[in-house]
Amino acid sequence: MPKPFLSIERMTQRYPDGQGGTMTVFENASFGIEKGEFVCILGHSGCGKSTIMNILAGLAEPTSGVVKMDGFEVSGPSLDRGVVFQNYSLLPWLSALKNVTFGIKARYPDWSADKVEAHARDYLAKVGLEGDVVYRKPSQLSGGMRQRVSIARAFANQPKLLLLDEPFGALDALTRGTIQEELLKVWAGTDQTVFMITHDIDEAILLADRILLMTNGPFARVAESVEITIPRPRTRTQIVEHPNYYAIRNHLVQFLGQRSKELAGKQSGDDDQRPETVRIDKTALVDEEPSAPPPLRAVND
């Protein structure tokens, strides 16, 4: 089997539990992401999603295990891995435009100032920020606009891997919807690999090629990898009409509501904890029934 573009191999994270022992967040977690893939990770709080994100970003070190990208081991933060943080992390003393050029200047130090600015404006326009708005400071922008700037900053750097840490968590539902579609539009034009944490099932189905499901911690693991068998381009209003939508959604709800608890707390022994691939496709009918262990529990029609 060829190595995927990004592979996480036997990653373990333990913290001291404050009583002299250790608390294992996850153990021997292994999974991979292909180039150009959009992968979302879903799981309850405390299962270590953010820890995985920080390790991928290079902001934290796992207790053991390796992360390989393009065949090379990841250590420390790098411009090859862009991050969009939940709280936007814009520098408040810089305008929206300067926040984006800040990133581009770091990425392409030998570009001329004009080229940097044109590139920044280009990406700001892609997320719908044009005109005088780009000269505003983050404090003068709404939450949705701030996250747009943050997304523009990350995409403008064209990193090999883009990490999104619950980017829409702090936004209201309506704003979230429009920015999700903008994110899709920006992403569609690229072969950008994206790894995103979210709490929102619908958001994950809309955006992802594949959803990784995590069991509850401690000893959390990536239990399933659910393929989203809904063709692109997707829009929020159209995907709900697709026959696979509710089948996938119900599977996810079942997992998060019930099986994430049932599967929790199992120590791995020494096994690789690779996720099981789940493929739910009601349009393909019988010809290739996936090896998904759970039968579909709820069906829309």
Binding site: A57, G58, P77, L79, G82, V83
Partner: peptide, 12 residues
Amino acid sequence: KDWVNVARTHEL
């Protein structure tokens, strides 16, 4: 810390 992380992820 977020701002420092921004600097770190931009390899400053």
